[in-house]
Write a protein that binds this DNA or RNA. Structure first.
Lengths: 194, 194
DNA sequence: GGCGGCATGTAAACAGTTACATGATTCC
DNA sequence: GGAATCATGTAACTGTTTACATGCCGCC
C-alpha cells in the first residue's frame, strides 16, 4: 500500500524521500502511517522494479539529496491500482479494544485511567484535524506545496477537485474522532457507575 | 498483540488452536484479526517461551488435537501487559481512504461504484453487530462456551463483569459502522453533486 | 462418490517496527 | 559550544499474509 502512496505523491511531482516522509506525516498518516526507514527502503525497491528513477541533486551540494521521479511504468501501475476497487472491509486493529476486551480482571481505576488518557489523545487529534479544516482555498491546503509557476508543471492537475477528495478523507477523520470521543465518554461513565 | 489475545482466551480455559481461531473470528476479529496460520505459529512460539504448554488429546483419537494451557509465567505476562496502559493512539490503516485521497484523476462513476460497494459491506457489518447486540444474559453471550459445571473450573470469573467489557467493544463497533455509513452516504451525495 | 467443513500445520514472501548510524546545518 | 532539526540510510527483528499441504468426518 505504501508503494501506491509514494507513487501517488510522485505523480504530482518529483521529490526526495524526506519530502515524501513529510507529506505522509502531514496527510496520509491519519489513515496510513509509515516510518522513514520504510519509505527509503520502499523507494529503493520501487527503483529496482522500474517504477521510479532517482538522481542525486547537484545544485544543492550540501548533502546527498536523492530526487525520485515516477516512470511511465509507475504511472501505469498507479492507474491500474486505482482502477481495481476494494471489495473488502479494511481489517481494523485497535489495541485499546483488545485491552478492554480482556479487562475483566483489572481494577476499575486502572481501566479508567487508561480511558481518560485516550480521551486526551483523541481530543488532541480532533483539534489537530479541526485546525486543518476551515475550508481553505484548495491551493493553500494542497499537500503539494511547490510553486506552480516554476520548473515542473504538473500536467492537467485540477487542484479544486483534488482538494475535494482530500477534504473527504479529513471529514472521516473528524467524524471518527468525534465518534471515538463520544464512546470514550460513555464508556468512562459506565465504568464509573459500576 | 496476538500473543496477548491468545493468553487472554487461554486464561479462561485450555483449548486448541482451532478453538482459539473460532473465538478470535467471533469476537476480537472486529478489532484485531488473525489468520489461522499466525495463530498456530504464535502458539508454538509461546510454548517455546514457556507461556503455554500443550498436550495431544488422546480421548478423541480421530485427530491430533493439541490442547494449549496457560502457564504461571503466561498468566503473569498477561497481567503485566494489562498493567501497562496504552499511551498512544492506535495507528489506523484504511486503504479506502488512501484510494480516495488519490482519486482526483479517477472518473466519478468509478469512485461512486467503489463507495457504494463499501456502503453495502458496512451495512452488512452493522447488521452483524446488531444481531449480537440484544443484551443477552452474560453467560449466553460469553465467547467462552464451556460447561461451567465441568472439569476445568475457572477460578473467580465474574461473567457479568466480563460481559460488560465485551459489550463496550461491541458498542464501539456499532458506533464505528454507523459513523462510517453516514460518512459514506454524505460522501456519495457530494460526489454525485460535483 | 464428491463437497464442505473440521483440524492442523509449514514455507515463503511481504510489511512494518525498532535500533543503530552518520554528517550537515541552524538556532540559542 | 551544544542541542535540535534536517536528511539519509542500513540491519535486525517481529508481525502479517498468501499459498501450499494433508487427512478426517458427515452429509447429500
Amino acid at each position: 500500500m505504501l508503494k501506491y502512496i509514494l507513487l501517488g505523491f510522485l505523480n504530482y511531482e518529483p521529490m526526495t524521500g524526506y519530502d515524501l516522509k513529510r507529506l505522509v506525516d502531514g496527510s496520509t498518516a491519519h489513515f496510513w502511517h509509515a516510518y522513514h526507514s520504510q519509505i527509503y527502503t520502499t523507494l529503493r525497491k520501487m527503483e529496482q522494479d522500474g517504477l521510479v528513477t532517482s538522481v542525486i541533486d547537484d545544485s544543492d551540494e550540501r548533502s546527498e539529496r536523492r530526487i525520485y521521479n515516477i516512470t511511465e511504468q509507475g504511472k501505469s501501475q498507479l492507474k491500474q491500482w486505482l482502477g481495481k476497487s476494494l471489495t473488502e472491509l479494511p481489517p481494523s486493529k485497535d489495541g485499546l479494544l483488545v485491552r478492554l476486551f480482556f479487562s475483566g480482571s483489572r481494577d476499575n481505576q486502572d481501566v479508567l485511567n487508561e480511558l481518560r488518557f485516550q480521551l486526551q489523545l483523541h481530543q488532541q487529534q480532533l483539534e489537530l484535524y479541526q485546525q486543518i479544516k476551515p475550508e481553505q482555498s484548495a491551493a493553500e491546503q494542497s499537500p503539494v506545496k511547490s510553486d506552480r509557476q516554476e520548473s515542473h508543471h504538473v500536467e492537467s492537475l485540477d487542484f479544486d477537485r483534488e482538494a475535494k477528495f482530500w477534504q473527504m478523507t479529513l471529514d472521516l477523520g473528524l467524524a471518527y474522532e468525534q465518534m471515538y470521543l463520544k464512546w470514550l465518554d460513555e464508556t468512562i461513565a459506565k465504568i464509573e457507575s459500576f
